[in-house]
Design a protein around this nucleic acid. Structure first.
Ligand code: ZN
Ligand code: ZN
Ligand code: ZN
Ligand code: ZN
Lengths: 140, 140
DNA sequence: AAAACTTATGCAAGCATTTGCAATTAAAAC
DNA sequence: GTTTTAATTGCAAATGCTTGCATAAGTTTT
């Protein structure tokens, strides 16, 4: 289990207030090793501090995205999932049929990244992508 | 302006009913050359047939996706957009800062596609993708 | 330490999309 | 051509997420 200290210090360095709500959201993200959803974060936060509103959770997530501290990825299942950037970059293949998720090293997309930068001068945000499709089993 | 005949015949070939609602949704998609949203489709449909519900539009879009006749792509702006598959494959680079959209030939992702198939036996659905990031102007 | 200003939160309403269910419509069986 | 069965729709409610606005909490200025 990791500390959430680095996330928290990054926040205060940038001049944002360290409210109890924000600390709890940060904690929930930093201490989760899978890809956590807003509702899971909210449940953890509310357990310790009952008067938090889910919109505060979403606003904190928004802030963390802007500061490049967490990524937001649609892995299917109707809700978006969050992951701390400093826990390492990778991607996922998501089977639309059975829901299976295959993990991918970040290097798989690095040649695409540099191609887009070279040919289109476009700096693509490919930090934590989900690519949908069909796995072997489900592809007939 | 294209005919919607091919979309319609594909539907009936597969044993689905050609209800007025479906015909109007199909028409709206086939006759739009940009990437049309559910609400734009709904507006066009309602103009000709006032008693249609937006959930029917969404259900028809769902059907068309399952039959591989339209793609659904998030190009930003808070609503998803639809495009007929038979109007040609391509992709987009979407600037998160200014909203600019750069068009991409489908070939840009074909080596990724074959890499994923070869190495992971995963058949990725890369028919109409939006890649987010920053354009030259907005990248400092 | 008040006053003035800024930031962050809670609440309620809103938005895009989905879902459950009962009513309608069409196709199939008799 | 009725009855039976299946597909499709409309409606209302639900879901995940966002936004506007007034209150609250924290900072800065005086
Ligand atoms: Zn991941
Ligand atoms: Zn699968
Ligand atoms: Zn397109
Ligand atoms: Zn831009």
């Amino acid at each position: 289990m990791r500390q959430d200290g680095d996330l928290i210090s990054r926040l205060s360095e940038q001049g944002y207030r360290l409210t109890p709500q924000r600390m709890l959201v940060l904690s929930a993200i930093a201490n989760s090793d899978h890809h956590i959803s807003a509702e899971e974060i909210y449940a953890q936060v509310v357990a310790k501090y009952p008067y938090v509103n889910i919109s505060t959770v979403y606003r904190t997530l928004d802030l963390l995205k802007r500061l490049d501290l967490v990524t937001e990825t649609d892995l299917g299942g109707g809700r978006v999932r969050y992951h701390p950037v400093d826990k390492g970059h990778h991607h996922h293949l998501v089977c639309q049929e059975c829901g299976a998720i295959i993990d991918l090293d970040e290097s798989v997309l690095s040649s695409l990244q540099s191609h887009l930068l070279r040919e289109y001068k476009f700096s693509a945000d490919l930090r934590h992508l989900a690519i949908f499709g069909r796995c072997t089993n489900c592809n007939q």
